[in-house]
Design a protein around this nucleic acid. Structure first.
Length: 117
DNA sequence: TAGCTGACGAAAA
DNA sequence: TTTTTCGCCAGCT
């Protein structure tokens, strides 16, 4: 365990994936929220990075439920089709306007709050 | 092997 | 208040 105190089976990526999968349908979260929940608030970039790798991940990751802290579909361009992300969100009842989640503040799902103890 | 990039965010200027 | 810079760490070239 040279990599700090984090065991190999508790990779940052896997941790991110698990949190993302916990996001309930019709809700969205942000990269920073996940990063913060994992204790690496300043590693928000890594969260998005993990999403990138999610395509190669064995388990399905609802990456469309993860947006930046402004509620903007930052990663829509990484989907098969840029519109797919919005489509998926709308299917879950989330309204998207101009690549931005409507009422993002209300739909925001914070792991620190929802998963807290 | 070494360095660059990257779906962000927060602090500093 | 707005804009700019730094941090973060792992995967990819």
């Amino acid at each position: 365990m040279k990599n700090k105190d984090i065991p190999t089976n508790t990779n940052f990526f896997d941790l991110v994936f698990q949190v993302v999968r916990l996001v309930p349908k019709g809700r969205v979260t942000s990269y920073g929220a996940i990063a913060k929940y994992l204790g690496t608030a300043r590693s928000s970039r890594m969260v998005g990075w993990a999403m990138n790798k999610s395509h190669h991940h064995p388990i399905p990751i609802p990456a469309h439920r993860v947006v930046n802290r402004l509620g903007i579909l930052s990663g829509k361009h990484h989907f098969a089709n840029p519109t797919q992300m919005q489509q998926l969100l709308e299917q879950e009842g989330i309204k998207v306007k101009k690549d931005q989640v409507v009422h993002f503040k209300k739909l925001f799902w914070d792991p620190e709050i929802e998963l807290k103890l």
